[in-house]
Design a protein around this nucleic acid. Structure first.
Lengths: 146, 146
DNA sequence: TATTGTTATACTCTATAACTATA
DNA sequence: TATAGTTATAGAGTATAACAATA
């Protein structure tokens, strides 16, 4: 983790630093709305899907089902999301944004994406495609995309 | 955040995904030792420096001073780190690893770095230098390194 | 019997403010 | 007066296990 001593010439430290940058960005965006990083991530995951099941949401956020229950509880109490029963499987619960939730989510989502694009803006155009393939290689995504 | 819809061709989502991968790696490594992600990050920050001041540590971990106090408390109670007063400035406190802390830290540090290298291993050799420069561009580091 | 989610418990993290001691 | 760190409090996240309803 010291600079330049590893055989990777600092890539490892750089990645760790970058990970902090990205996740702190979620926290910073949320702060203005008194939402935590996790709450912002949940809202962003819901808005791009319109509605989503608890299990899938847990997988996306890497959160245990009990923790997710609490997370959704807090957002439901604040009137931002609603639970409803999945008609196809009565054990399952799905989540959507309320009207107020949608308004908040749009603001937050635009803010998050514009900040991420702000990071990307630092990379010269002609390097972006190779950066994407490197990122996908690290996360285990097929180079062709998912 | 949906794939391929943005003008960045998925780089934004990829970066967010990567950030999760990297930070979950800290959490996963810690789990085996019953240490949280934050505790692993603190230990890794101390071991590469031998000793470190609270203020600097707070900056590295992006943690408020009060939160850091608690974090150090818990690790001190578990016998992994020790506080001592900075002789140069009697307001300041510095942190070092205990004997047991050093043993644990070495295991953890090796585990973290080998996992990060595992991520990097997915990137073709000839792309690593440009990836590093892209990463630095995003975190605001000068291309020449810090 | 296995799965989906909720509840309970206990611990950890985060944020803010008030406080002590040094500078 | 400013800075370093601690303490207190309250809300939020995480991990485990026990549980009810449904498949």
């Amino acid at each position: 983790m010291t600079s330049g001593t590893g055989s990777d010439d600092g890539l490892a430290e750089g990645l760790i630093d970058l990970a902090h940058h990205v996740l702190h960005l979620f926290a910073d965006v949320g702060r203005a709305h008194r939402l935590s990083q996790q709450q912002v991530e949940l809202i962003c995951a819901v808005i791009v899907r319109d509605s989503i099941g608890m299990s899938e949401l847990g997988r996306i956020l890497h959160v245990e089902k009990s923790g997710l229950s609490n997370l959704v509880d807090r957002l439901e109490q604040r009137g931002l999301v609603t639970r409803y029963s999945d008609p196809a499987d009565r054990r399952a619960t799905r989540i959507t944004l309320t009207g107020e939730g949608t308004t908040t989510a749009m603001t937050i989502y635009n803010d998050v994406t514009s900040r991420v694009r702000g990071l990307i803006a630092g990379i010269p155009q002609n390097q972006r495609r190779s950066t994407l393939s490197a990122v996908r290689a690290m996360t285990g995504d097929a180079p062709a995309g998912r």
